[in-house]
Each structure stands twice: as structure tokens, then as C-alpha cells.
């Protein structure tokens, strides 16, 4: 079903490009990586085992290309990365650094089931892409691409301490976004 495959890949392209652009901060290179990934998916579709979702599989191809590109580039130059471009978390805590009532985490029901459902990873990616750009990059490199913080900070030219501060804020923001965008939406059978 080449036409169907072509359509699926075409539909995926914007999401792949947004992700690549975020990681690389270089539109031309991001487009090249996406194009190569789409070509590799087109040629290699026979090896798609079907064990995972198709879009996850294509993202996996892109991810490997991005890791190679990031490693290659980190040997060559530092990139336009602003470590101060971080999300503000003051709205979550009061002056004594305790949770403000509206920001208190609630119980997430069956997160393992949730992530199998259609739409979960779209909400997840949406939440990541709405972090400040530098924060989203560090978070994606750490959690979606599985790099260690030592490698991330070396490639971005920031201190490991800085990297940990960014990840802390990213996780706080992301958990709040997912709670609003996904876990809070299903049912409010919350027991406090």
C-alpha cells in the first residue's frame, strides 16, 4: 500500500520536523534529517515489526539520526543555546516554598494504560514543545533520547549543575501540563 504509506509519512512530517528543529535549532539541518528519516522509513518499512506504533517507529529512526548529528556537532561547535531561557516555577510554590493549593499534584490513574491510548503522546509532545525552547531541548535529549546529563551539557556548553536545574523545572512544568491536558481530563474521581 505505497500510497497509504506515503500519506502516513506525509502526515507525520510536521511533527518530525518540529522535533528535529527543537533538537538542532537549525532549520536546514533539521529538514535534512527528517528527509533522510522519511526515506529510510520508506525503504525500510519491510523491517517494521509492527510491535510498536508506526509513528513511534519513524520517530525512532529520526532519533538515531539526531543523536548522531548532535554528537557530530558538539565536536565542532557550541550552538545558540540560552541556559537562562527557563520556565518560571514561582507560581507553583508559596513564600515558604510549599505547594500552592492549585498546583498540588493529584493522583494519576493508570498511567501505563494511558500511554497506550491514542492521543497521549501527542499531548505529551505538545507539553514538551510548549516549554521554553532551551528547556525542551535539554528535556528531550535526556528523557526522549536517553543521553546522560554529562553528554548533554558537554554538547550544549553548559554546566551539569545548570542541566539539573533545567531538568527539574522541565519536569515540574511537564507534570502540570500532562495533569491538565490528560490525566485530569478523564475522570475526576480524585481522593485527596
Amino acid at each position: 500500500m505505497p500510497l497509504d504509506l506515503q500519506q502516513q509519512l506525509t502526515d507525520l512530517r510536521p511533527r518530525l520536523l518540529a522535533f528535529a528543529q527543537l533538537q538542532l535549532n537549525d532549520t536546514g539541518l533539521a529538514e535534512d534529517m527528517v528527509q533522510e528519516s522519511l526515506a529510510a522509513a520508506w525503504e525500510g518499512v519491510g523491517s517494521f515489526a509492527g510491535g510498536a506504533r508506526f509513528d513511534t517507529w519513524v520517530f525512532g529512526i529520526l532519533k538515531h539520526k539526531l543523536i548522531d548529528a548532535i554528537r557530530q556537532r558538539s565536536r565542532e561547535q557550541a550552538t545558540g543555546f540560552d541556559p537562562d531561557d527557563m520556565p518560571d516555577i514561582d507560581g507553583l510554590f508559596n513564600q515558604r516554598a510549599h505547594w500552592l493549593p492549585a498546583a498540588r499534584p493529584r493522583t494519576w490513574h493508570e498511567p501505563e494504560q494511558a500511554c497506550m491510548k491514542d492521543g497521549f503522546w501527542q499531548v505529551f509532545d505538545f507539553c514538551v514543545l510548549h516549554l521554553p525552547e532551551s528547556t525542551a531541548r535539554v528535556f528531550s535529549m535526556r528523557e526522549l533520547m536517553g543521553l546522560e546529563t554529562a553528554e548533554i551539557c558537554a554538547s550544549l556548553g553548559i554546566s551539569e549543575q545548570n542541566c539539573w536545574v533545567i531538568l527539574h523545572r522541565a519536569r515540574l512544568k511537564l507534570r502540570a501540563c500532562l495533569e491538565n491536558g490528560w490525566f485530569g481530563r478523564e475522570e475526576n474521581h480524585e481522593v485527596l
Binding site: 517494521f48 515489526a49 510498536a52 513511534t56 525512532g60
Partner: peptide
């Protein structure tokens, strides 16, 4: 787990 399922599906 998401990353790992990507690895698995590489075949």
C-alpha cells in the same frame, strides 16, 4: 519505555 519500543520495532 517509549524509546525502548522504538528500539524493538527496528526489527
Amino acid at each position: 519505555d517509549r524509546s525502548r519500543s522504538e528500539e524493538d520495532s527496528k526489527g
